[in-house]
Write a protein that binds this DNA or RNA. Sequence first.
DNA 1: TCTGGGGTCCTAGGACCC
DNA 2: TCTGGGGTCCTAGGACCC
Length: 419
Amino acid sequence: MFALADCNNFFVSCERVFRPELEGRPVIVLSRNDGCAIARSNEAKALGIKMGDPLFKIQDIVRRHNVALFSSNMSLYADFSRRVRAVLRSYAPQIEVYSIDEAFLDLRGMENLDLDALGKELSHKCRRLTGIPLSVGIAPTKTLAKIASKLCKHYPKLRGGCFMHRPEDIEKVLRKTPIEDVWGIGRRTTPRLKAIGVTTAFDFRNLSQEWIYKHMGITGLRTWRELHGIASIEFEHIAQPKQSICNSRSFATEIYDCKELMEQVAIFASMTAEKLRDEQLLCGELTIFMATNRFRHDEPQQYTNTVVPFATPTNSSLHLTRAARETVAELFTEGYGYKRAGVIATQITPMSATPMPMFDAESYGQHARLMSAIDNINRTLGHNTIVVASQGMNRVKSHSEYRSPRYTTVWDEIPIVKI
DNA sequence: TCTGGGGTCCTAGGACCC
DNA sequence: TCTGGGGTCCTAGGACCC
């Protein structure tokens, strides 16, 4: 058996921990630049606000129903995610962290326990220790566990835990599960399935193996098997090393100036280098991309990207920012308004497994010492105390009007409340 | 006026090897 | 006249996830 523990409306729930008066009120959390809704409370969902709805299109609903708005506060959510994981780890020997708000628990060998009670207890404990409501679905496969956890959200009677294992129960649930709600069935395959009359998970399960493999490949077949109760998606108890690290942003307004864009992209490169060093990694190449505003149909459109290989793997801010600047200078076209840009580090290797370069060992060592000195200073005296000059003195152009304090991680932001 | 930011895996086809 | 039969690696594009 596997459990899926999923935090309900995670970002909204984090905000509510410090604003309990928002319980029962519609709340949404916005993407960067306060662009669109990326998390919604149940009340906000009931008002018809959809995932990804742009704020300007739902302003009416927001005003009319007094919807509480928050800009996203990722450091707050990351900290809550860490707390929730700590609770989960006390319930299972192995967990697989799937995303910021979800993790699988490996319950193999624990089938003799009362798993329904265990799920409910875990949910209750998480709420009590962290303030975050949690849905725990337990089933013979990961795909079924996902469906079971979704049930908890619709049926409060389950008290946050649903153990779904009897074949007749599974069938009953699958008959009511819309095909698009199944993990692994996305927006491309949904219409194709509906066109042949497959509207529920149950219908999907009744298709033949041959049909599935022919039209949906090995991944479709895995989903099909999982719905039949045959575990076919590996439980990954060891976090796989990252294959890429990406830093990209949409800007608050279009950038028409080459130097300004160079500075912004240098900031992304610098952020990427810091992440690499933080995780003791090196990258072998850096992809730089830039794009115009795809919603502006009246403006000329452009999307370009270039891959810059490094002679030896690196995590030096100087190497990465230089690659970024040179590439932007090359790709930039006068007259285009750039709305989005970013960098992606790939060919990632752990520092410990990467041999020292044979020819420029000296400069390699110099960079490493310089970077660790900069990291130390920034850690002690504050982030961005020392930056690479090519970043300029700017920050990423962004807009967040409704951001809450970093209650749990930055002390001077916590408001003092007099009682 | 205003539209997020990350990731992963699979497949087919081409280049290349012996 | 007759023109093999295996492999691997890389890449781009597509699909999916939160």
